[in-house]
Write a protein that binds this DNA or RNA. Structure first.
Length: 345
DNA sequence: CCGATTTGACCTAC
DNA sequence: GTAGGTCAAATCGG
């Protein structure tokens, strides 16, 4: 069908040459920072009553959740230190200089097509929803060598055209388990979705230290946190928001980080920093492997609540989830360049 | 009509 | 030369 004679002159857009050498250091710093904050969060939760908006049954699992987070962070941190110490290998494929100057024809494309020479910023494997809380637009699909059966779908942030958001992700059905999807995230959201600008609302009765209730998701206020129906916790959403900027911790569910391991998938390069957050007792299972190898994208804010459709399958979109986080996440406010929690209300 | 998806071509890294 | 990533015209759907 559509015999598209693609040949339009495309004006390129994103070119980014990240300082690969500095990245591991920033990753380590961020991990340390994360761990410290998790510690603070635990202390605060232990010393304070159930935060507003938290279902009663969520309290018991909270500390376990945080313990799990901290364990994962610790192992991720050691992996990161390993990586930095051992030098870059694995994903540190040598990069050819992009001096490709083709000089003919009006249909020459500017050098925006760059093969990824680095590992994903975040890698998740999920059997549940592919909605990670952000809005994606599919821009391509391809059969790849690795798994001829399952094409890889390419998504970019919906806000790339208007806001230049550089976040992209790749979705691919797992070879082993077709009902499983492997999602690789590249880059961070630098966009701000007007409909989903996170709210920062002070807790009604803040504990001794300042505790803020941060609600993410739609334009609803934080008081409207309880959704109509319970949603399965999707670690992919959790981590992608956590790292991507707009953290989401569905308040209605209680979950824990049970396992920690270094996920070494066949495609994951050695030395990749990884952390696994598993959900226990949920109807859907998912594994999240966060990796922050060669690059550290500048932080940003944003987030949508619409999931783009399909690719290797039909991906259901789910309503945006609302969550809460408590603690003195002071640095959310400073969208520092290497702050993974660039939070800019 | 407009925005999202599909799909073949283009481009670059390896 | 090949594989992976992106572009953009065509197409689809609300």
């Amino acid at each position: 069908m559509a015999s598209s004679a693609s040949g339009g002159a495309a004006d390129g857009g994103g070119r980014s040459s990240p300082p690969a050498a500095e990245a591991p250091r920033a990753v380590v710093d961020n991990l340390i920072d994360l761990r410290e904050r998790a510690e603070m969060l635990r202390n605060m939760l232990q010393g304070s009553p159930t935060p507003p908006g938290t279902p009663a049954d969520a309290a018991p699992g909270t500390s376990e959740l945080i313990d799990g987070i901290m364990s994962s962070l610790s192992s991720a941190l050691s992996a990161a230190l390993d990586t930095t110490a051992g030098g870059s290998h694995g994903q540190g494929r040598r990069r050819r200089r992009a001096g490709a100057v083709t000089g003919s024809g009006p249909q020459r494309r500017s050098s925006t097509t760059r093969r990824r020479s680095h590992s994903p910023f975040l890698r998740t494997v999920t059997t549940s929803t592919l909605d990670d809380g952000n809005s994606w637009r599919k821009y391509g699909q391809k059969h790849i060598q690795d798994s001829p059966k399952n094409p890889r779908s390419y998504y970019r942030c919906t806000h790339k055209p208007d806001q230049g958001c550089k976040a992209t992700r790749q979705v691919q059905a797992s070879d082993d388990n077709p009902s499983e999807f492997v999602i690789n995230y590249f880059g961070q959201h630098t966009c701000r979705d007007p409909s989903t600008i996170p709210l920062v609302i002070e807790a009604a009765a803040p504990p001794d230290h300042c505790a803020n209730l941060i609600s993410f998701g739609s334009t609803m206020t934080a008081h409207a946190v309880p959704p109509q129906r319970p949603q399965a916790f999707d670690p992919a959403m959790f981590v992608s928001r956590l790292i991507g900027h707009s953290s989401s911790l569905p308040a209605q569910d209680y979950y824990r980080c049970g396992s920690e391991e270094v996920h070494s998938s066949s495609s994951a390069p050695a030395g990749e920093l990884a952390a696994v957050v598993g959900s226990a007792g949920m109807a859907s299972s998912a594994t999240v492997v966060g990796s922050a190898p060669a690059e550290c994208w500048p932080g940003g804010t944003g987030g949508g609540d619409k999931a783009c459709g399909h690719g290797a399958g039909s991906f259901p979109s789910s309503p945006s989830s609302l969550g809460f986080m408590t603690g003195s996440f002071g640095s959310f406010g400073n969208a520092g360049e290497d702050d993974m929690f660039g939070f800019d209300p």
